[in-house]
Write a protein that binds this DNA or RNA. Structure first.
Lengths: 166, 166
DNA sequence: CGAATTTGTTTGCTCCCCAAACAATCTCCG
DNA sequence: CGGAGATTGTTTGGGGAGCAAACAAATTCG
């Protein structure tokens, strides 16, 4: 998805009266509503970080957390945890490594694998990022009670489990 | 996102005992759980269509529904409804037009715009697609009661509304 | 030891997304 | 009416995400 989707001014189109199109069955579809919510959340995430002068995607945040909590992780294990191909992971790690947030250390026990770990700068940055994520989470859940938020999380997990994985 | 993410055989890795990594705070984050659910739903969507010998993405389905319910729509209006840039829409429409599902007709009233409409083949195909979507929706909601599904949809809408749109 | 497997990388392909520039067209104001 | 400004669709350029296939290095297993 594009990064930092900042809305353009869009001089209040006079011609199209914003008639709000007919969306048919779409608003009754779980998949559709899920996609819309996800997209809005992504935009909010980007906006939150941009406003703080930080640059990170939700995927990168998840990756950093996984590396932080599982120091020495191999790329293969990380890719599996993220549900992506190992070849997809390579340029992502390249970028984070170029930003000095993590390093690919040689594993002493297995010469094929890399032992991933955060740099100390990476650890510090992650702490900052976590604060921003908390702000972001608070906003996207702002219209929900604590109980509703928990229920939503549980329902989402049930959806994930119900979808077939192949 | 990649199309038709069919899992590979993956000869039951003996080395990594699938120890289930530590995900830290991630499972408590709405954004994270939303992303995971959305990803699983996408895979299910692709698998459902692939199994039926049809090829369509959730986005294309939404687009077709919008065009069907708002015949004569301009590309600009459609892009706005989809929340994407008008330049992004061009290759998408090219593809659907190449599949003879829709046409860009010249607008009689405004020479700048195209009036989008489904072909009769497009209308027929969409009816087939809608059946597949119903199957797909049934599966992803298979672990949820009707009330839970409705509640989930409502909660997702609240999340979308709570996220800031810039 | 040698064959098979695993890991990380590279290359190639597809897709999604945006921004900027451009021609055609329409609108609106003088 | 006529030209300036806005709108629309397209093209081009750039970035990211994702997979598959091929490869070298390294490990494992027969």
């Amino acid at each position: 998805m594009g990064r930092l989707p900042v809305k353009k001014p869009a001089t209040a189109s006079a011609k199209t009266p914003a008639t709000a199109l007919d969306r048919g069955v779409l608003p009754t579809l779980l998949g559709y509503m899920l996609r819309r919510a996800q997209s809005a959340v992504f935009v909010d995430f980007a906006a939150t970080f941009q406003a703080a002068g930080a640059a990170l995607t939700p995927g990168e945040f998840g990756l950093l957390i996984l590396v932080a909590r599982n120091t020495g992780l191999s790329q293969m294990a990380l890719a599996r945890a993220l549900g992506i191909d190992r070849s997809t992971l390579v340029p992502i790690l390249d970028r984070l490594q170029a930003r000095s947030l993590l390093v690919r250390r040689r594993s002493p026990t297995d010469g094929r694998t890399h032992a991933l770990e955060l740099t100390s700068a990476g650890t510090k940055a992650l702490a900052r990022f976590a604060v921003l994520v908390r702000v972001h989470e608070k906003r996207i859940a702002s219209r929900l009670s604590t109980a509703e938020t928990q229920m939503l999380i549980d329902l989402l997990e049930k959806v994930r489990a119900g979808a077939r994985s192949i």
